[in-house]
Design a protein around this nucleic acid. Structure first.
Lengths: 162, 162
DNA sequence: CCTTAATGTATAACATGTTATATAATAACC
DNA sequence: GGTTATTATATAACATGTTATACATTAAGG
């Protein structure tokens, strides 16, 4: 068994560590989504959630809202267009800006997600780390250990059983 | 100004959030490395640190030690071979396994890094989040705000001035 | 107004993670 | 001991982030 250097090195490898935990969390989240039979990627959810919250947004505003760069937003919106969840049209007053809005199918997805999927995911993550406290490195260790012990998809409202 | 949905949604977008903070932290770390004039990527450091700590390791052990998949480790080790920091040769007793070891150049890099760069990075990250406490979402918010206010590269032993 | 600068989006090239699978070497089992 | 299973690494194909840059449209200045 090999030592986990990223964990051992602590603050020095914090970037690598946060990335890999985030990737693991997103993969686990994807599993919950897939098991619910939905056709969407975990990373696409923040985009439709942003439009649901704020109304139609431009590519640039979406990039800001989700915290990635504009080309990344352009690509993800392209995928959501393909999937039929959003619609895009030039802003009437400024032909450079593209307003992205939810289609009926997209709104249905949001409505269903709000009712069924998002609460489940949020509850599972809260089960994983909602009660944690203390220095961040300790919390990260607890999260990694927790995910290794019980993956996110098995943390649905069955907290008491453990 | 658009709302940061990933932050707003809390536990629901924790995966995206950790990933993006990790990416930001690694980009900032890279800046520190570049400013020191070193030719290495932040993401490659854990590999040579692992070998420095444990001695020659196989590709599979390195993948484990760094917490990524084997193909990822194969690629990064390929880059470190190109850079001349590591050497690879089949294990004498098992020709399937490839033992990766530090070259003299690689050992020099580690020695110099231990003395100059790693303490600087660790100190900057500790300055950013070493004193934090409390629920993880609050700490993440503090980290994001902290990075926006003062990037990692400007957090070198000048903590008192702020 | 007409040129030039600024802004918003798209595209290209690259980085680095993943999964699935091919290939080579070793271990296991009649 | 020769076939079959397992193991270790390499490679292919893909996902999703980045930076740099091209292109179209609008704003600004003379």
């Amino acid at each position: 068994m090999v030592e986990d250097v990223v964990r051992t090195l602590g603050f020095l490898c914090m970037g690598s560590r946060l990335r890999r935990i985030g990737e693991r969390l997103q993969a686990d989240t994807q599993q919950v989504i897939d098991e619910a039979g939905l056709s969407i990627q975990a990373g696409q959810y923040p985009f439709i959630a942003a439009i649901d919250r704020a109304g139609p947004l431009t590519i640039g505003e979406l990039a800001q809202a989700v915290g990635i760069t504009q080309p990344g937003a352009t690509r993800t919106i392209g995928q959501l267009l393909e999937l039929g969840y959003v619609d895009m049209q030039p802003a009437p007053d400024d032909q450079r800006r593209r307003l992205v809005s939810l289609t009926d199918k997209g709104q249905d997805l949001v409505d269903h997600s709000k009712k069924v999927i998002w609460p489940r995911i949020a509850a599972a993550v809260a089960d994983l780390c909602g009660d944690l406290d203390g220095p961040i490195l300790e919390q990260l260790a607890a999260i990694e250990d927790g995910l290794a012990a019980v993956p996110l998809a098995r943390r649905n409202a069955a907290k008491e059983e453990r």
